Simulated assay, not measured.
Amino acid sequence: MTSIPASRPALPLMSRIPWRKIILYTVAILFALWLVLPFYWIVNMSFMHEVDATSVPPHFLPKDPTLANFLGFIHPTTDQALLGSHAVADTPYALMNSMIVALTTALFNLVLGTFAAYSFSRIQFKGSQVLLIVYLLTRMVPGIAIIIPFYLVMRALHLLDTYGALILSYTTFALPITIWILKDYIRSVPRELEDAARVDRCGWFRMMWSVFLPISAPGLVAAAIFAFMTAWNEFMFALFMTSTISSQTMPVIAANFATDLNTQVTLMAAAGVVAVVPPLVLVLICQRLIVQGMAAGSVKG
């Protein structure tokens, strides 16, 4: 006769509860709320009337949604035009300034970074690794330590209160990371493709355009987005080196809202939404390439 195996005793309920997963999911949800709720609150207030935005208890949804706060940037009322040292009327111009500076900074970083990254990836020279580390160490210098020298240099070059001062400064900040991202992508391109392009009598520039750049598209996009965000969000250098709306960017104008005791919080919220939308749309469009570029840049080499 075959013996019937004894059934295993049931585990206690406490040991069957997946505490580890519960804790991880709880932490993830809390972290997501911590990131999303501030942005949601700004968007929520931007569609409110001032009375609803300052009411106690607060309204988590607009009772009577309005676009007046956004329309004020195009046709500000008399009261709105005087708020925050004319911050409302200056917002469209600041948005355009930020876009010009950020896009130009991203373009310069891609051009200079591609040349430098190709040199570090394909040309073996003494001290190349040390030079790469020195480039990266420059990012560890706090901005407040170099802002005065930058200011004096830009004044000597007569670039104060111009796009040039901001573009040169931001390109300097973002270029080391751009080089580090692109060098790993260029190293991943087989040398055989480069040799084949030379056999086909392709010059260096045509080889870069036809071979390297298409393969390195995720790295290029990741580097461009990083440079764009660096220029878009920077405040301290923009504050020091600009003085008029001809070159002031969104962070500077957004700070002006806080200089007036009568500033409407709904207008401040609308300005925040306007400032966030361009980089947010850009990141959403290029999300897949950004993830590929950053992931590859961290594991290849």
Rank of each mutant, 00 (worst) to 15 (best):
S85M: 10
D260K: 07
I179L: 06
P190E: 01
F235I: 01
Q124W: 07
H158W: 06
I147P: 02
T2C: 01
L13G: 05
M1L: 14
A231L: 07
T263R: 06
W209E: 10
V221N: 04
P92D: 12
F235L: 11
M14S: 15
M96S: 12
P9I: 15
A174Q: 02
V252S: 00
P38W: 08
T266L: 10
I215D: 07
V189A: 01
A156Y: 09
V291H: 08
I23G: 06
D200K: 06
D64N: 12
I17M: 12
Y93M: 14
G72W: 00
D79M: 12
M48L: 07
A296Y: 10
P38C: 11
G143M: 07
A10P: 09
F120A: 06
W232V: 04
S246M: 02
F115Y: 10
C202T: 08
P57V: 00
A296M: 14
R191D: 14
T2H: 09
F205T: 11
A197E: 03
I179N: 06
I146K: 03
W19E: 02
S15K: 15
T266R: 01
N97W: 03
Y185V: 10
A89D: 09
H158E: 06
A196H: 08
F108S: 04
M229S: 12
P5F: 03
F212S: 12
V27D: 00
F120W: 10
V265Y: 15
A196R: 09
D161F: 03
M229E: 14
F240K: 13
S188R: 05
Y25W: 14
Q264A: 14
M140T: 04
I167G: 00
H158M: 00
G164V: 01
W209T: 07
R8Y: 09
S210R: 14
I133T: 13
R206Y: 09
R16V: 08
P149D: 07
L61Y: 10
P76M: 12
V111G: 00
I23E: 02
T104I: 14
A32T: 11
M208T: 11
A81I: 11
D52C: 03
Q287V: 07
M99A: 15
L159M: 15
Q129G: 15
A231T: 05
T104P: 00
I167W: 04
A94P: 07
P65Q: 08
I186H: 11
A222C: 03
V273K: 00
R187S: 14
A6K: 12
Y118P: 03
P57T: 02
R122S: 03
P279W: 05
S243I: 01
S15Y: 11
L24Q: 13
H158G: 01
G164C: 06
L82R: 13
K63G: 13
T91H: 02
W204R: 13
K21D: 10
D64Y: 13
P214E: 11
G127V: 06
S246H: 03
L220N: 02
L182S: 00
T259G: 01
T266A: 09
G219V: 04
P278M: 04
H86W: 09
W204F: 13
V111E: 01
S15M: 13
R201C: 13
P149L: 05
W34R: 07
V291K: 13
T26H: 06
L30F: 14
V51A: 15
R20E: 14
T230F: 09
P92H: 01
T91M: 15
I225G: 00
L261R: 11
M236D: 00
